[in-house]
Design a protein around this nucleic acid. Structure first.
Lengths: 255, 255
DNA sequence: CAGGGAAGTATTGTTAACAATACATGTCAA
DNA sequence: TTGACATGTATTGTTAACAATACTTCCCTG
C-alpha cells in the first residue's frame, strides 16, 4: 500500500507558478505594472494555458496581480489607499502575533529565527540587494510560521508581498528596505520572553517602514518578465531595467 | 464620455457565485462536506463550466471549499486544528480592530452597527435560525467594514465564514450561535469610545464561542445543494436534511 | 447472503479550435 | 510633422469536444 497522497501534478503546477511569482514580487524582481502574459508564463513554466490562467486568477484573488478584462494580467500597483490598509492590517496583526511567539516559542522556533537573522546579516554584508529584500520580508512571515498558525502565515505572506509592491512604488531611497537590525532587536525581545517589548518593537518597526514611504514619488516602469522567471532562484544578475518594456508604454503617464 | 468601469460580466458572474456560496455557508445553509458539482452550479447560476470552475477555485483558495483531484469540490470540513487556527487568528485581529473602531468611528458607522444589532434582535425575536446565524456572523464583518479597511474586511469575511463551518461541525447545542446580546454590549463600549473595554469584550465574546465547541461531536451530513441555491435569499424553508445525499455516502465513516 | 470484480455511467480534467477584443503598424490628410 | 483612421497582428476570452478518472450497478462466485 502506497501513500494516499495524490502527487497530482495539477495543483502542484499552479502552486509552483504562484510561489515563483510570489517570490519574484517579494524580492522586487517583478516591478508593479509588469505585464504577465499567458504565453510567457506557459513557456517559462512549461504548462498549458489553463494552468497559467488558474495561477493568475489565484494571484489576483490575493491582490498580487490585477486582471483587466481582455487586456491581461499585470503585477498589482497599489495606491496610497491600499498601502494604508495593508500597513494598518499589519499593525493590527503583527505586534499581537509577535507577543504570542515571545510567550510560546520553543527551541526549534527560536533557532529558525536566529538562523534567519544570521542569513539577513550575511546578505547585508555582501550587499545582495534582492536577497536582503527577500529575507527582510520573510522574517515577518517566519514569525507567523513559528507561531504555528497556518492561516496567519498565509495572511502575512500576502501582506508582506503586497508590502514589497508598496515599497517598490513608494519607497524613498535605498534606506527603505535595508536598515534592519531591528529584526535582531525584536528577536532579542522574543528570546527574553518579553512579550510586551516584542510587541512594541514590532509595531515600531512597521511604523518605521511606513514612514519611509513617499507617496509623491513617480512610478517606476515594469520589469522584463522572461528574464526574471528564467533564473530559478532569482539570485542572479537581474538588474532593474531602465527602459520601459513595450507592453508598458501606456502606463507611463501618471494621470 | 461614459465611465470607464467595464461592466464586464465575467468577473461579476464569478463574484455572484462566490458571494452566494459564501452566504449560504455563512448562514449554515450549506453544511460541511456538501458536494458542489460543476453541473449543479452551472444550472443554478446559468453559467458555463469555466465560470463554475473559476468560482470553485476562488472558494478553495479561501478555505471555504476543498478541491479533490478528479473527485470535485466539497464544502470544507475544518478539523480541530483548523478551528484553533481560525479562532487564534480572530483573537489576534478582532479585539484590536474593535478598539480602533471605538476610537475612530463616525456617525454613519455607528448607525450602521446599531441598525444591524436591531436586525439581530428582531431576527432572534422571530426565531429565524438562519437569519440569526447570518446576522451574528455579519456583525463581525461589519466591524471591519466600519473600520474602512478593505483587506481586513475580506479577511474577516473569510474567518467568519470558516467559523460558521466550524460551528456547524462542532457546535454543541443550539446555544452555540444564539445567545448574543454580547454584540450589543460590544457596541455600547464602542459608542462610549471605551477602546480597551470594547477590545476586552470582543476577545471574551470570541472565547465564549470557542468554549462552546465540542470536538468529540460526530459530524453531520451534507446538505442538498440544489434546494439551497434555488432560493435567492435563503430566507426560505430550507430545513436541514436528515438523510444523507447520495454523494456523501462515502464520507460517513470517520477513518 | 456477502464480497469481489467487471461493465457502464457520470463527473471531472485537458486540450484545441474559435470568437472577441485590444494593440501595433502603416497610410493619408491637414 | 502630427493626428486620425483603417488594416493587420497578437492576445485574451469562450466554447465544445475529447480524455481520464471515479462512481454505480449488476453479475458472478464462494
Amino acid at each position: 500500500m502506497r501513500h494516499i497522497r495524490d502527487a497530482d501534478s495539477s495543483l502542484d503546477d499552479e502552486h509552483r507558478i504562484v510561489d515563483r511569482i510570489y517570490s519574484a514580487v517579494m524580492q522586487q524582481a517583478l516591478a508593479p505594472r509588469t505585464k504577465l502574459s499567458e504565453a510567457t508564463i506557459c513557456e517559462s513554466f512549461g504548462v498549458g494555458r489553463m494552468r497559467a490562467r488558474r495561477a493568475l486568477l489565484l494571484l489576483a484573488s490575493q491582490g498580487i496581480v490585477e486582471l483587466r478584462s481582455n487586456r491581461g494580467a499585470f503585477v498589482a500597483s497599489p495606491d496610497q489607499r491600499d498601502a494604508d490598509e495593508i500597513f494598518e492590517a499589519r499593525i493590527h496583526i503583527e505586534p499581537s502575533l509577535t507577543a504570542q511567539v515571545a510567550q510560546r516559542y520553543d527551541a526549534a522556533g527560536l533557532r529558525t529565527l536566529r538562523d534567519h537573522v544570521a542569513k539577513e546579516k550575511s546578505a547585508r554584508a555582501s550587499e545582495n540587494r534582492q536577497e536582503i529584500i527577500r529575507l527582510s520580508g520573510e522574517f515577518h512571515v517566519l514569525i507567523a510560521t513559528v507561531s504555528g498558525n497556518g492561516f496567519l502565515t498565509r495572511t502575512l505572506r500576502e501582506l508582506v508581498t503586497r508590502t514589497s509592491l508598496i515599497v517598490a512604488m513608494f519607497g524613498s531611497g535605498p534606506a527603505s528596505c535595508c536598515r534592519e537590525d531591528e529584526h535582531e532587536t525584536i528577536l532579542d525581545a522574543i528570546e527574553a520572553r518579553d512579550a510586551s517589548r516584542a510587541s512594541d518593537l514590532a509595531r515600531a518597526h512597521l511604523e518605521t517602514i511606513r514612514r519611509n514611504l513617499d507617496f509623491t514619488k513617480t512610478p517606476d516602469s515594469g520589469s522584463d518578465l522572461v528574464s526574471v522567471l528564467r533564473s530559478p532562484s532569482f539570485s542572479g544578475s537581474v538588474t532593474s531595467q531602465t527602459a520601459a518594456p513595450k507592453e508598458l508604454k501606456n502606463f507611463a503617464n501618471g494621470s
